[in-house]
């Protein structure tokens, strides 16, 4: 994971920053397929609560995951419309519904720290580690475990 980008030197990684609730998170920029504004999402009955539904992204069907629910954060207040980050995993597109999408940050690898022991267990499951920034802690989202519905119980 550290031997990644073209823009970044081996010592740095680039992240798209997102807000989930009050928490600043980062997704590896290379994993991001697209960033979307509010979308028309078709609900899917019987699906677990974290699956917000399906959306049509230029002819491709994308599964929308509510990141707040997946991470165990309380639901977004009614009426506030968030944004979505589309990531690709094993030829499938997933749209992660978040509160907002911020800038792309280039962060030095030596600032990377493992998950603090106090991190919530749900978060720990989907977090690679953290960066301590001036504006707060950035949690690096592990998209692979996040979207691995085969392994982690869907009705988490």
């Amino acid at each position: 994971m550290s031997d990644t980008t073209n823009n970044a030197t081996p010592e740095t990684r680039e992240f798209v920053t997102i807000m989930v609730g009050d928490q600043l998170c980062g997704i590896d920029v290379l994993k991001v397929y697209d960033v979307l504004g509010p979308q028309k999402i078709a609900r899917v009955s019987l699906a677990s609560a974290e699956v917000a539904g399906l959306l049509n992204l230029r002819g491709k069907i994308v599964t929308a995951i509510d990141l707040r629910r997946r991470l165990g954060v309380e639901d977004r207040p009614e009426g506030e419309r968030g944004m979505s980050v589309v990531v690709e995993r094993r030829n499938e597109l997933y749209s992660l519904a978040v509160d907002s999408v911020g800038e792309v940050l280039r962060l030095p690898a030596d600032k990377f720290e493992p998950n603090p022991a106090t991190l919530d267990s749900t978060w720990r499951q989907f977090s690679e580690g953290v960066y301590r920034l001036e504006e707060g802690v950035l949690v690096v989202i592990n998209d692979d475990s996040l979207l691995d519905y085969g392994r982690t119980p869907v009705a988490a």
């Binding site: 899917v44 069907i61 599964t63 094993r90 499938e92 979207l147 869907v154």
Partner: peptide
């Protein structure tokens, strides 16, 4: 259907 929804046996696929 996406793997996330595959266990819902009531759906055989989806479409646009």
């Amino acid at each position: 259907v996406t793997p996330v929804l595959r266990e819902i046996s009531i759906f055989s696929g989806n479409t646009i």
